[in-house]
Simulated scan of single mutants.
Amino acid sequence: MKTLFRIALTASALMLAGGAIAAPRTVTLEVENVSCVSCAPIVKKALSRVPGVSQVTVVEADGMATATVTFDDEKVTPEALTQATTNAGFPSTVKGSS
């Protein structure tokens, strides 16, 4: 009977832990130095290559761009995303997240 109780307790704990799986997050980055036709695609490609990123949208306006990135927060941080754009020559900062 004790063994059955332990199995049930362990199964319950595993089921509760499964509910703690992280949901995808979205962050908006303000990207600098976006001044030519090829800049936004470079930013998008740099962000898309980061492991854990599932979707990237980049919109240009007046030498700046806004990048909206959907990612798995268990695999990547917003800081890693800003580092990816900076490494590509386009420094960025986190404008907002959800």
Rank of each mutant, 00 (worst) to 15 (best):
R6I: 03
R49A: 14
E30S: 15
G52K: 05
E74D: 12
V58Y: 01
I7L: 13
K45E: 11
R6F: 12
T26H: 04
A8V: 02
L16F: 10
R6A: 12
K95Y: 08
T10K: 09
A8K: 06
T28K: 14
M15S: 14
V69S: 02
P24L: 15
Q55F: 10
K75C: 07
A88E: 02
A80M: 11
T93W: 07
A84K: 02
R49T: 12
D72Y: 03
A84Y: 01
E32R: 10
T70P: 04
A40I: 08
S92L: 06
M64P: 03
T3D: 08
C39R: 02
V31Q: 00
I7E: 02
T28L: 13
K75F: 09
T85Y: 00
A65K: 05
V50E: 08
E79A: 09
E32I: 05
K44Q: 14
E60C: 07
V34H: 04
R49S: 14
T66F: 06
A23Q: 13
A23D: 13
V58P: 04
I21L: 13
R6K: 07
A22I: 11
V37F: 08
L29V: 00
T68M: 06
S48C: 09
N87C: 05
E30G: 15
A22D: 03
A20M: 14
E74W: 02
V53I: 04
E60R: 11
M1I: 11
D73M: 10
V69M: 07
M1S: 11
K75L: 09
T93N: 09
A80P: 04
F71I: 07
V50Q: 07
D62F: 15
A46I: 07
E74S: 15
V37N: 12
F5W: 09
P51G: 00
V34Q: 00
E30M: 15
L47S: 06
T26R: 05
T26M: 09
G52Y: 03
R49Q: 14
K44T: 09
C39V: 11
D72T: 05
E32W: 11
S54C: 05
G89S: 05
V58D: 02
G18S: 08
I42R: 06
S54H: 06
I42W: 04
M64L: 12
P41V: 02
E79G: 09
I7C: 07
C39L: 02
L16E: 02
A84R: 02
R6H: 10
S38Q: 11
T26Q: 05
L9Y: 09
M64D: 11
V27R: 04
V59S: 08
A8H: 03
K45R: 15
E32H: 04
M1G: 15
V94S: 04
T70A: 06
A67D: 00
R49Y: 07
L16P: 03
L9D: 09
N33V: 14
V27D: 03
M64E: 10
I42D: 03
E60A: 06
V69H: 00
P91D: 00
A61V: 05
I42P: 01
A11N: 07
V59N: 10
V31H: 03
S97V: 13
C39F: 02
A46F: 01
E74N: 12
A11G: 12
E79D: 13
E30Q: 15
V37G: 12
G96R: 04
V27M: 00
D62V: 12
L29M: 03
A13C: 14
T10N: 09
V53R: 03
S54Q: 08
A46G: 02
